[in-house]
Design a protein around this nucleic acid. Sequence first.
DNA 1: AATGAATGAGACTTCATTCAT
DNA 2: TATGAATGAAGTCTCATTCAT
Lengths: 201, 201, 201, 201
Amino acid sequence: MTSPATRRQGSTTQPVPQRLLAAATRLFADRGYDRTSVQEIVEAAGVTKGALYHYFGSKDDLLHEIYGRVLRLQQERLDAFAEADAPVEQRLRDAAADVVVTTIENLDDASIFFRSMHQLSEEKQKQVRAERRRYHERFRALIEEGQKAGVFSTATPADLVVDYHFGSVHHLSTWYRPGGRLTPQQVADHLADLLLRALRP
Amino acid sequence: MTSPATRRQGSTTQPVPQRLLAAATRLFADRGYDRTSVQEIVEAAGVTKGALYHYFGSKDDLLHEIYGRVLRLQQERLDAFAEADAPVEQRLRDAAADVVVTTIENLDDASIFFRSMHQLSEEKQKQVRAERRRYHERFRALIEEGQKAGVFSTATPADLVVDYHFGSVHHLSTWYRPGGRLTPQQVADHLADLLLRALRP
Amino acid sequence: MTSPATRRQGSTTQPVPQRLLAAATRLFADRGYDRTSVQEIVEAAGVTKGALYHYFGSKDDLLHEIYGRVLRLQQERLDAFAEADAPVEQRLRDAAADVVVTTIENLDDASIFFRSMHQLSEEKQKQVRAERRRYHERFRALIEEGQKAGVFSTATPADLVVDYHFGSVHHLSTWYRPGGRLTPQQVADHLADLLLRALRP
Amino acid sequence: MTSPATRRQGSTTQPVPQRLLAAATRLFADRGYDRTSVQEIVEAAGVTKGALYHYFGSKDDLLHEIYGRVLRLQQERLDAFAEADAPVEQRLRDAAADVVVTTIENLDDASIFFRSMHQLSEEKQKQVRAERRRYHERFRALIEEGQKAGVFSTATPADLVVDYHFGSVHHLSTWYRPGGRLTPQQVADHLADLLLRALRP
DNA sequence: AATGAATGAGACTTCATTCAT
DNA sequence: TATGAATGAAGTCTCATTCAT
């Protein structure tokens, strides 16, 4: 009884909202939020406009949902690594490498995340920035912990170190291509290594 | 005798194309390329739409011009530092710090540069990527030179090191605010220092 | 309960696409394709621009639709006359007269048809020319049949005879005015007669 | 001292107004009056916009000039043939063939003539129609002379016969291609022959 | 006799969203 | 839960024409 249209993507198995989110993610990453029309999203998801507006209040809601998904995932993982039972150097290295791997594995999310903040409504932006700050602070705390313990250099303010590392994470979607010379794990190890080497006292 | 319209921005002294470019830069950085209308640009520049299209073939041409300006400037500066008569550590440190200062001094250009590539026509993107690559390679050569000379660690491929540093430059427009705790030069020194420390053998 | 806008033209009974096509036909014939704005069309049809673009991909699509309508009609009628069970002179005369009557009855279509080919996209022009050729060839075949049978003169190549007759059909929209001295049928009979007389051996 | 721009077309020898008219004729025939921009005309003529507006009051003036040129030429030639010292059949045949040859030799003029009437201002259209009528009447008079003399059939009103023939002339620009199977003179002879055969009593 | 920068109106088209069904 | 026709505002761009030089 399913219409042929709903069968695209071989994803009739997935519920409609997920299908919409997946289609939107791919398209937003590909051509940018403003260049993606609602029509294109619903076509890619194999549904109609009415369905989209049934589940999401607006196009901008879709974007917000994507932001939420990324933020939740990254925060959870960081929390896990930060709370682990290991020396601070190890915990920082693991967290730093993990965010790289996770970012590469969701490169579309990353492209969107760093490029589309402005398209969110002012209110939603505020919310995202707040969660982002929480994440940033947890990461910074890790560095400060090491600095206080004397295992990390205090030459550079911890804040700046966080931004230094996250700059490289942000940049991944610009240059990393799946199937490239290095595996995600190798890239992650290298970048975490650079961070730790820079922090040597 | 000058009409009121030409007086906006008190910039009647500057020629029209420059005025348009300045207005476009500010607006593109503020609200993004797609969210800026041609109407807004010409109003900010105090001219009419016809005048804009007299000098620029399209909105996209304005963006391309901005890219060209940034690329020319950065390449010139990098070339100068790379060719200087000094040890390679010094030349790399100077170049790495300079690109940070220059980026902060033209933060609008930077916001646009890293966020708006996709809005360029495919052809213009190709051109920009080619010039970008030239820049990247020059920077990488500096690192490789130090690695061969044994003053830089070879633990990380030079390519990746370049991307690590430029990630942080890229990221500046996300977090740096003029009038912040650190001066541009201080930020630059810190970031260059992090790079050099990470490269210690 | 119908809004005032939908009532213009007293044509709320007709579906929107037909109303648009009718309005476009009248206007294109009146003032030419390029001189007719999309705004004028939707106003004449009593709908909004959005509605037009919901049904037609472009202004050029409207024109293409008009061409399609004319071509289908004329081809059908020619086929019917050509396949009739009658001597070839009779079949040619009937077909030649019929195209005149049909053209006069749809004079707007005819004005457009012969004047607006160039405004179609290259691709659509190709398509129209192909269908036009099919029509031309069917008509020519009728003449050649008569020439082989010895009832028509072979002094003039059949191709040229077809163009001779269709020139006069083409020309109708230039000079024929409804309510003129001659009825459509009379004009048709005269023109078909001229053709047949010119073909006498 | 002539700038490189004015040298295009190798036509620096011709005066500017003629060059503009020639360029306009070619372009109007190629892509239609409305689709041709003033910019394109001046570029093709190797002059600037100021020069065009120095010689012609408007774009529509250029078109009017083209109409005038065609009308003058055709009227002169028809007058010459009509007044010749020869039997009426011969005079009609010569005139009918001549207009075909002349039309083919100026096919661009013909395309424009039959397709662009509507782009003239109402006033200029009236003027053109008046001259056109004079031409038509002179041609019709020739046919009526033959009908009165009993050498042409009176089965068809002379008016309609004129339109029949001019339809075929009008149509030439649709199908005739230089370098085709038949020379202009051969086409002319065939079409004149068809006319005369149709008029056989 | 000629330039070319500038105007300003209007062209086609896109698009997020709504609403009766 | 879902449709898809329809809206209406806004978007980019074109162009004939003018005018100071």
